[in-house]
């Protein structure tokens, strides 16, 4: 088997137009499955021990993953999709269920609820500018 690329903690991911994200998280909540053209799509709240983020599922991913599932992402992308900042597998990425339940998580910060801007030192890169909301504004917490 190929050596596994190191997993990034969610808090270290930065928006970029590259399929370069390898990470593992637990799915906390799922929105409604909707149709975008002929493809199913569904927004989910996911998190690891360091941060939370919105995860955009496509096609059969929408029914394959359920809250409580631990998912491994390889070569995924964190970028804007219709003005929303989301993590998704994209065409070259892969999302696979590797377990259930036994993973710790935090619900704040939520990287999709942060305003990002160009890095003054390197305009090709993004840096955090402001916190729009500490928690997801799309998914409410069950507490």
């Amino acid at each position: 088997m190929e050596p596994e690329p190191t997993l990034q903690p969610l808090k270290h991911i930065v928006p970029a137009a590259q399929n370069n994200i390898n990470t593992k998280f637990i799915l906390l909540d799922k929105g409604k499955v909707t149709l975008e053209g002929q493809y199913k799509t569904c927004l989910a709240l996911v998190a690891d021990e360091t941060a939370a983020v919105h995860f955009q599922m496509w096609g059969d991913e929408c029914n394959a993953f359920e809250p409580g599932d631990i998912i491994h992402l390889a070569n995924d992308i964190f970028s804007y999709s219709r003005n929303n900042l989301v993590l998704r597998a994209g065409k070259r990425g892969k999302a696979e269920k590797v377990g259930e339940f036994t993973m710790s998580f935090v619900e704040t910060p939520n990287l999709s609820e942060i305003r990002w801007g160009p890095d003054p030192c390197d305009s090709r890169k993004y840096v955090q500018q402001a916190v729009i909301s500490p928690y997801s504004r799309v998914f409410s917490s069950p507490h």
């Binding site: 906390l28 809250p67 507490h143």
Partner: peptide
């Protein structure tokens, strides 16, 4: 591993399963 106050989602998952 779960802090008191953060257990709600786990409880929902456990009960559902």
């Amino acid at each position: 591993d779960v802090n008191f106050g953060s257990q709600k989602r786990y409880q929902i998952w456990f009960a559902k399963k």
